[in-house]
Design a binder for these strands. Structure first.
Lengths: 228, 228
DNA sequence: CGCGGCGTTGATCTCTGTCAATACTTGTGG
DNA sequence: CCACAAGTATTGACAGAGATCAACGCCGCG
C-alpha cells in the first residue's frame, strides 16, 4: 500500500481515529484499484459485501426506480467513504455507484471489518462517527435545499470546491454541468441561469473553469439573502 | 421499569437484536419520563450526553439557523430512537428536539452506552444499523425534496402513515397541519392546496381524518408523474 | 463536412411563497 | 350559555423562481 494512499485513508472520517496498523488489518490483502470513468462499483439490490473509500477521483451514488429513471443521491470525492451503511442494515445496497472520472478506490470487506470490530470496539466508535458525519452532511443539504435559491446553492457548491481561503481563486468543475445541476436539485437550464446570476457577484465561469473574485463576498451572498 | 415499557424497548429497531439484560444494563437506573407538549428535550449546540427513545408520543427534531429560521429535519414516534449520532460526533447536538404531543421518553446515557459497547461489541452493530437507518431516511428526504411536487410529497407522507396495505384506508394526522407542512418543506397555505389537489385523486381530508380511496393509485401518483 | 452531445438562451407556464382576509375551534371568563 | 380571544385552517390575489419546451450555438469527432 502506497504511503500517500494510507495518508488519505487515515484522513477519512471513518479511519481518522484508528491506528495505522488497525487500518492495514482491516484492509487485509485488498489493494486500491484503478477505475475508468462510468464504471459501476456496485449495483442497487446486490448483497452489500464491502464499502468504498475514494483515494482519487469522483463517484456518484444513484438510485434507479422501477421505471428506469435515475436519481443522483450523492456525489463523493477524494477521502470520502460511502455505502458503509448498507453493511449494517438489510445488507444489500439501496443504491448503485459509478465513477464519474478515472478514480482510485479501495473496497473494504465487510466480513473483515466485523471481525475487527469484535476484536477492538474502538473501531466501532470511529465508524459511528463516520455515519454520523454523513448524516450531518445530509441534514445540511436538506436545510440548504429548503432555504437557499438556485444561485445561492450554486455559490455554496463553488465554495465547497475551494481548497483554501484566499480571496481570489479559480477552481475546476469536477464533472458535467448537467450533473451538478441535478446534484443541486435544479435543471441544467436553471444552472446556466444561476451561473449568469453569479456573474454580477464576481463569479465567472468559462467551460469548466470557475474564477471567483471574492470568496468572502460569495459567502456573504449565501448568508445575507435568505429567502423567508 | 414497567414491563410494558420494556416490551416496547425490546421491539424498538435499536434494541430488537439485543438481549433483555443487555438493554437493562444500558439503561442503568434511568427511567422513562413523561413530557408535555412542546417541551424541549435537548438544544442545538448543547453537549450531547444522551440519546432518546420514544415509548409513546411524537417528537420533532429541528435546526435553527443563525438568523433564527427553523427547519424541521425529522419527526419521530413510538419505538424510534434519535440523536444517537450526536453522541459519536463532535459530542454536541447539531439540532434541537421538542415533543409535539404528550410523550413518554427514555433518555439513554451516552457514557453507559459507550461502556456497554466496549463490553459487548454486538451493541455497536445495532447502533451502526440505527444510525445508518437515519442516514437512509435523510437520503430519501433529499431525493423526495428534489423530485416531488408538494401534492406528491403530501401523498408520500400519507402513505407512510398507512399501517397496512389494504386498498382503502383512513388514517389520523399525527399532529397539526402547519407542522406537517413544515416537515414536508412547504408553507401551510400550500399544504391546504395540496390537500385540495389530492381530492381529485380520491383522498379526502376532514379535520385530522384522512380517507384514502385507493392506496395503490396514490402510489402511482407519486411514481408516475415525477418532474424531471 | 455533418453529426451528436452539451450547454445556453428565450418565451412561456406552473407551482409555490407571500400577504391578507376570512372562517372555524377551542378555551376562558363573565 | 354566550362573548371574546387566541390559535389553527382555508381561501383568494398576486409575484417570483424555476420548470418546460424549443431553438440555437459550440465543440469534438468520425
Amino acid at each position: 500500500m502506497d504511503s500517500d494512499d494510507l495518508k488519505i485513508l487515515k484522513a477519512a472520517p471513518l479511519f481518522e481515529a484508528l491506528d495505522q496498523n488497525v487500518i492495514v488489518s482491516i484492509l487485509g490483502e485488498i489493494r486500491p484499484r484503478q477505475y475508468d470513468r462510468h464504471q459501476i462499483l456496485f449495483e442497487q439490490g446486490a448483497v452489500a459485501e464491502f464499502f468504498c473509500l475514494i483515494l482519487e477521483g469522483w463517484v456518484r451514488v444513484f438510485r434507479t426506480t422501477s421505471e428506469g429513471r435515475e436519481t443522483t443521491l450523492a456525489v463523493y470525492s477524494k477521502g470520502s467513504s460511502f455505502a458503509e451503511a448498507a453493511l449494517f442494515m438489510k445488507r444489500n445496497y439501496p443504491a448503485s455507484a459509478e465513477t464519474l472520472a478515472p478514480s482510485r478506490i479501495v473496497k473494504i470487506d465487510g466480513k473483515r471489518l466485523r471481525a475487527a470490530i469484535r476484536a477492538d470496539p474502538d473501531i466501532a466508535f470511529a465508524m459511528l462517527a463516520s455515519t454520523s458525519h454523513h448524516l450531518k452532511i445530509m441534514v445540511e443539504q436538506v436545510e440548504q435545499m429548503k432555504s437557499l435559491s438556485a444561485p445561492q446553492r450554486l455559490a455554496a457548491f463553488f465554495l465547497k470546491l475551494c481548497p483554501n481561503y484566499r480571496q481570489t481563486v479559480t477552481v475546476k468543475l469536477p464533472f458535467e454541468k448537467a450533473l451538478i445541476a441535478h446534484h443541486l436539485g435544479m435543471k441544467p437550464a436553471s444552472l446556466s441561469r444561476a451561473i449568469v446570476a453569479l456573474q454580477e457577484r464576481g463569479v465567472h465561469v468559462d467551460r469548466d473553469e470557475v474564477a471567483i473574485e471574492n470568496v468572502f463576498a460569495l459567502e456573504q451572498f449565501i448568508r445575507l439573502e435568505r429567502r423567508g
